[in-house]
Structure formats: C-alpha cells, structure tokens
C-alpha cells in the first residue's frame, strides 16, 4: 500500500529518502522504548521504596533464563541471516532462516512456560509479592511481544509463498528484524534486572 502511495509521488519515492516502512518501524520502536522504560522506572521506584527485596537468583531459575538468553540471541542472528538471504534473492534460504527464527522464539516461550509452571506449583503468583508482580508483568508483556514477532514472521513466510518479490521482502524482513532485535534487547535488560541483581 505504501509502495503505491509513494509511487504517485514520483521517482524520488519519499521526501527524506528513507522508506516509509523503515521510518514507521523506528518510530514504533521509540514508543516501545517509552513503554518498557516506564516499566523499568516503576521497577526501580518500587524496589527503592521496598524495605527488603528478595534475591532474584534465589527465587528464580537462573540457568533456564540463561538458556533463554542464548536462544533469543541466536534467533536475532538467524533473522539477520534471513535478511541476508532475501538480499541474495534466495527464497528457500530466506524461508529456512525465518522458520529457524520462529522455532527458536517458540523454544523461548516453552522454556518460559516451564518457569511459570514451576512458580505456580510453588504458589508464587503475581499477587504473592511485589517482586513477583514485577516479574510476571514485565516478562508477561515481553512474552506477548515474542508472540507478536512469531505471528509476523509466520505471516511473512506464508505471504512470500505466492507473492515473492525480493525487493519488498528485503524491507519486510528488515523491519521485522529491527523489531525482533528490540524484543531481544528488552530481554537482555530484564534478565539481569530480575534474576541477577
């Protein structure tokens, strides 16, 4: 759609030369930064004002979280490889790396659900304490972002099946990748903040 709209503007495409999609994704990520910055600020405020704060590594499972960190960082690499494949006009390779990314993201969620399940069986709920309230809310919202990423990549792969246009898909996988790196970075902040500090 945006391609059509810019087409009408003439050969120069956009005024700034930056594709609409790219600019839009960066602006979206700006708002996402504000969203998670608010949550981190709330975490800091609540923790500073608490008389005592549990040690994250005693309440939570650090090895599983470390495994998840590795999984998510690997998926950030594979999404870049999918982008590189799209640049090389290699549709099969593009699809393969996209699906590896999706599988890694699913693996992340599976590990996360084991963690959640373990907490629930030990009667640790969001209502148990302010620590678990922060833990479940921030990781839950991050999990929603992971699901959104999976949905986008799956849709991208399905979309590419019959409508492969490498120029368009280079952009689309790049925008998805930018978002995916952001999701990755949020986790890289969450991991030490909740588990290690």
């Amino acid at each position: 759609m945006s391609a059509t709209a810019t087409q009408a503007l003439g050969p120069s495409k956009t005024t700034t030369g930056i594709p609409n999609g790219k600019l839009g994704v960066w602006l979206f990520l700006t708002s996402e930064v504000m969203l998670f910055a608010t949550l981190f600020t709330s975490y800091i405020v609540l923790r500073m004002s608490a008389p005592s704060w549990p040690r994250g590594w005693e309440e939570l499972n650090v090895p599983l979280a470390a495994l998840n960190t590795v999984i998510l960082i690997t998926s950030s690499v594979t999404v870049v490889l999918a982008y590189a494949a799209a640049c090389e006009r290699d549709k099969a390779k593009f699809n393969a790396y996209l699906w590896i990314t999706i599988l890694l993201a699913c693996a992340f969620l599976v590990v996360k659900s084991f963690e959640y399940g373990h907490k629930f069986t030990h009667h640790h709920f969001p209502s148990t304490s302010i620590f678990f309230a922060v833990y479940f809310t921030t990781t839950g919202l991050h999990g929603l972002h992971v699901i959104l990423g999976i949905a986008y990549f799956a849709w991208l792969s399905y979309w590419a099946k019959d409508n492969w246009d490498h120029e368009l898909f280079v952009g689309r996988v790049e925008y998805g990748g930018l978002y995916w790196h952001f999701v990755d970075i949020v986790w890289i902040f969450l991991f030490p903040a909740l588990y290690l500090l």
Partner: peptide, 25 residues
C-alpha cells in the same frame, strides 16, 4: 502522542494487573 502515551499504557497495564491479577503495584 508518540512519546507520552506509552507510559500511560504501561501505567494502565499495571493498574489492570492490580484489579485483575491481584498485584499491588
């Protein structure tokens, strides 16, 4: 709008958790 609305969205999510999930943010 871009920079000011996300904090309210986050704040609303926390309040929603307080009401629905029994947290006490």
């Amino acid at each position: 709008l871009l920079l000011a609305f996300p904090p309210l969205e986050a704040a609303s999510i926390l309040q929603l958790m307080d009401r629905v999930a029994g947290t006490s943010f």
